[in-house]
Simulated scan of single mutants.
Amino acid sequence: MATPTTTPATMRAVQYDACGGGAAGLKHVEVPVPSAKKNEVLLKLQAATINPVDWKIQKGDLRPLLPRRLPFIPVTDVAGVVVDVGPGVKGLTAGDQVVAMLNSFNGGGLAEYAVASANLTVKRPAEVSAAEGAGLPIAAGTALQALRSIGAKFDGTGKPLNVLVTAASGGVGLYAVQLAKLANLHVTATCGARNMDLVKSLGADEVMDYRTPEGASLQSPSGRKYDGVVHCTVGVSWSSFQPLLSDAGRVIDITPNFSAILTSALHRMTFSKKRLVPLLLSPNKADLELLVGLLKEGKLKTVVDSKFPLSEADKAWQSSIDGHATGKIVVEMES
């Protein structure tokens, strides 16, 4: 157990007091350091990554569910060092380097310290930097679960499926391309022209510029039908995907709107073989351990777009809102 003198009474944090406001709505504050309760650990944070869901919560898109209470310290994907453990925690001790996904209701990632559930905290080996590890929980977790929904297997037993990854140079897309190749899938990807070489370097078999007629059509250059689509962008209708799918092809929509949910329900009711499947991440420790292990082995990499100190968290926030990042936007906590 860490001694009380190792942890200060207060910490620097970034929070917002109301929904809306974007980066201008973020405030730098000094607040009490939280304490670990049952089955929780207190982390001294080293890095956090911003995901689109973070500013969508601030915008009010997930009301009334989130934010549960204001003021709210946003961000859930973090890496740091365990400084204290609550009752009931096994397998984690003070001094452990870790990656964690914080509770979405409580947030807390844009701060010097945060409390994480021991069930969503995994040890981070020396080979994995804090920035690399902090990129994993939402983005890589979503990519992994989307590919599993298509039928991808990561133990060598899977079938050789064809998959399309849209917006392949974004946070989820870059992980999806790599994980699909680890599952021995044939990968067609769309992205902007400036990122085509990067996406190819991560293993994509076919890469299309989404701004060209060929890319906009989403058709595989080699004429393959898709067994699955990891759909990481918006504005593409089900009718655009349907003719491109194999007989039992699935489109996994990671940002489903109301229309997508209705379409999915209709497919289930009519027992359609081709389906639109909305995906909401189901965080779990086993997936996070798998992903950290792949990073350690060099089989997966976190592409970092940019790094900002906590004092410039508003710039990181705006960069995510702008939507042009290639990979992850990292906020680092200065010592």
Score class of each variant (00 low, 15 high):
217 S>F: 05
127 E>P: 04
191 C>E: 02
334 E>C: 04
206 E>K: 09
85 V>E: 05
103 N>S: 10
15 Q>V: 00
2 A>D: 14
65 L>A: 13
271 F>R: 14
213 P>T: 03
252 I>G: 03
208 M>W: 00
205 D>V: 07
154 F>L: 05
178 Q>F: 07
290 L>A: 02
64 P>R: 06
42 L>T: 06
297 E>S: 14
236 V>L: 12
84 D>Y: 00
55 W>L: 13
283 P>Y: 03
94 A>L: 03
164 L>Q: 01
258 F>P: 00
168 A>N: 08
203 G>S: 09
281 L>V: 09
285 K>Q: 15
284 N>H: 13
323 G>E: 13
61 D>V: 11
90 K>D: 15
12 R>N: 15
30 E>I: 10
111 A>H: 03
277 V>N: 04
95 G>S: 09
40 E>F: 02
199 V>D: 01
87 P>H: 01
80 G>C: 06
180 A>S: 12
38 K>V: 12
98 V>A: 12
323 G>K: 13
281 L>G: 07
95 G>C: 06
333 M>A: 01
187 V>Q: 08
237 S>H: 08
245 L>P: 02
298 G>H: 05
53 V>Y: 00
14 V>E: 07
20 G>T: 11
92 L>N: 06
327 G>K: 08
117 S>R: 11
257 N>E: 06
186 H>I: 07
119 N>S: 15
113 Y>T: 01
190 T>K: 02
49 T>R: 01
236 V>T: 15
34 P>A: 11
5 T>Q: 15
75 V>S: 11
18 A>D: 11
303 V>T: 13
81 V>H: 01
194 R>I: 09
322 D>I: 08
326 T>I: 13
227 D>E: 12
73 I>S: 05
180 A>K: 05
197 D>R: 00
29 V>R: 14
138 I>C: 09
110 L>D: 09
47 A>N: 10
299 K>F: 13
293 G>V: 05
212 T>S: 15
288 L>K: 08
159 K>A: 14
11 M>A: 03
124 R>N: 02
114 A>N: 00
102 L>K: 07
157 T>L: 05
54 D>V: 08
101 M>V: 09
13 A>R: 00
157 T>I: 03
335 S>F: 09
123 K>P: 03
97 Q>V: 02
155 D>Y: 07
72 F>Y: 15
104 S>W: 03
169 S>K: 04
56 K>L: 14
127 E>R: 12
238 W>A: 10
30 E>S: 14
118 A>V: 09
319 S>G: 05
55 W>C: 09
226 Y>V: 12
263 T>W: 01
25 G>P: 01
217 S>T: 06
308 F>N: 11
259 S>P: 01
300 L>K: 07
152 A>W: 07
71 P>E: 07
117 S>Y: 08
330 V>A: 03
56 K>F: 05
38 K>C: 08
182 L>K: 13
15 Q>N: 13
147 L>F: 11
26 L>N: 11
329 I>C: 04
314 D>H: 14
334 E>Q: 14
